Every structure is written in structure tokens, then in C-alpha cells.
Amino acid sequence: MPSAHLDPLRREIEQRKVAPAPAPWQLKAQLTIAGLLEVGFDDDNELLLVASSSGRSVIDCQSGAKVARDRTDNLGSDRHLQTRGIGPLQERVIRMSGINGGGLPLATADGWMVEDITLAWPEQHLLLIEPGSWLHGARYNRPALFHKLAVELEVRAFGFSYTGLSLVIATAGELLVYGRCAKTLEI
């Protein structure tokens, strides 16, 4: 039985309209990718490896540009959820997140967080929480400041790059990429 004390939060999430991420985040790319399986960030930059049923791509999350494409049969990760990159990531091993498990960072060094909340299965409400806020209660006597970025049925991955400058939502058929400048990163 759900906890009654969370009912106000559930209602607020349900009633909140879906909207793009707020400043300093900017939508860099919205790509249709049929059969999207997994995504994974390089450790040191904003390059995202995307594996789908038709091959692999590398997306530069700061520009939104596709910088490499490979139509190989090697589509996804191994049992450790890792795969060798392509193009500019060719010499790198990338940790993947998607249909087989894994995960992207859920918070940035300067306090942005994401939450994937299921209010009524199978709908997943994807939330971006602002720094200094906490979804499940006031922190520092401040209300929860959050934004509903999407309501999805088949989320493959949702989270940040390791640098905290990119944010992605990967579903079975679409990839949304948000980015921000390094100068907005305050620690």
C-alpha cells in the first residue's frame, strides 16, 4: 500500500506539464533512433556511444552532431555492459546503459539530479531536480524544485555524462540530448 504522506508529491508530479529542461540546459538534439538498445558516455568528454538494431553511432552532446557511424553486427555491450567505441572513441571502452541494465550518473557535481518515478505502471515520469532541492522533502527549508521532462513507456537510459555537462533521455525509439556550458558548472 502506498504511503499516504507521499500523496501530495504524487499529485504534483502527475499534474506537472512536460516541458524542456530549464536554463542553463539547452536541447542539443532530438533524434529518432529505431530499435535503440543502449547508450554510454566516454569518461572524459561529451561523446555518447549509441547502439541500436541498425548499428552504432557517436553523438557529440555539446553540438548534437553525429560524428561517427558504424553499421556493424556488433550492436551492444558484453556481459559486463561494456563495449569498444567507434570513431573518436575507437580506443576507448565505454560502459553502456540500456535494455540489458546499467545506468548513467544520476547527479552532477554541482547538484542537478534526475529521478525516474513510476506513478502508474508502465508510465515513467522523468524528472530533473534543481541544485539544493530534494524531491522527497524540503531541504534547507526550500520546496522541491523539479521539472517533468517526459513521460515514457520504454526508457533505456536517463542520466548525465560523467562531466555533468550533458543530460540524455534514451527510449526504445528516440534520443533527447541536453547540454550546458562548462562555465555554468558551479561546484
Rank of each mutant, 00 (worst) to 15 (best):
A29K: 00
V114M: 12
E186H: 13
G103H: 09
D78M: 04
S53N: 10
L153T: 13
R56E: 00
E91G: 02
Q26A: 15
S57G: 02
L126K: 10
A120T: 14
L48A: 08
A157S: 13
Y140N: 12
L48E: 03
G103D: 10
G111T: 07
L145K: 08
V39G: 01
D70W: 14
F160W: 01
G101T: 07
P88Q: 08
A157N: 03
G179Y: 02
D110A: 09
S54A: 12
Y162P: 00
L37S: 02
A109V: 15
W112K: 06
Q26P: 01
G35P: 09
H80A: 14
R16I: 01
L104D: 04
A19F: 03
W121F: 12
S57W: 14
I59C: 05
S97C: 15
G55Q: 08
H125L: 09
A65E: 15
R69L: 15
L175V: 01
E91P: 00
D7H: 09
Q30W: 02
L167D: 05
D42P: 00
V114C: 10
I169C: 09
S54W: 05
D73N: 11
S161T: 00
G87P: 07
A144E: 05
P143Q: 12
G40C: 13
G85I: 03
A109Y: 07
C181N: 15
V155K: 01
R139W: 08
N45Q: 12
S52M: 01
L49D: 06
V151L: 01
G132C: 06
L128M: 08
R16C: 12
L119H: 03
G132N: 03
A138M: 06
L36I: 07
L167M: 12
H5I: 14
F158E: 02
R142W: 00
A107E: 11
L119D: 05
I59Y: 04
W25T: 04
A19W: 03
I59P: 03
H5R: 13
A4P: 11
L185P: 05
T184R: 10
G87R: 06
Q30C: 01
S3F: 15
G55I: 06
N100T: 11
G132P: 04
S161A: 03
R84A: 14
